[in-house]
């Protein structure tokens, strides 16, 4: 069986059928608008992110050490002798602080 063939002329006639795309409406205007935006973008001053500096961390170091020292001295009681009581401020007496049991008694008026 012989296969049908296609001549060059026939192919040219069919190629003439191929879609020739129409330029979308407003395409050139959109391009020029995009171009204008790109141009405008070039004149915008860009702010670079600040570089992290080491100095703030270094200055925070003695502060942190001082805080740690203070906590330690306070907890160890080294500062107690320097904390004097005055007449206007009562010395703290933790032993006299009422507990939860006392609250009920106070509310019932059996304790003052």
């Amino acid at each position: 069986m012989t296969r049908d063939v296609m001549s060059d002329t026939e192919l040219d006639r069919l190629l003439a059928l191929a879609t020739v795309p129409a330029v979308p409406e407003g395409a050139e205007a959109r391009l020029m608008a995009r171009l204008a935006r790109a141009e405008a973008g070039e004149t915008v001053v860009t702010f670079k992110p600040r570089q992290r500096r080491l100095v703030p961390w270094l200055s925070a170091l003695p502060l942190a050490a001082s805080l740690a020292c203070g906590i330690y001295l306070g907890a160890a009681g080294f500062a107690d002798p320097y904390m004097t009581t005055t007449d206007t401020v009562a010395a703290m007496d933790d032993s006299a602080a009422p507990g939860l049991d006392d609250v009920l008694a106070i509310s019932e008026g059996s304790a003052s």
């Binding site: 879609t19 020739v20 795309p21 330029v23 395409a27 050139e28 391009l31 171009l35 790109a38």
Partner: peptide, 30 residues
């Protein structure tokens, strides 16, 4: 524009991005 768009459209098999690529081509020139 028409010639470049026609070529890009053909190479992209009619894909909708043909306009975007054509624009990118001209922006490259600009």
């Amino acid at each position: 524009y028409r010639v470049v768009y026609g070529l890009v459209w053909r190479l992209m098999n009619g894909h909708a991005d043909a306009e975007d690529v054509t624009q990118a081509t001209f922006l490259k020139l600009w």
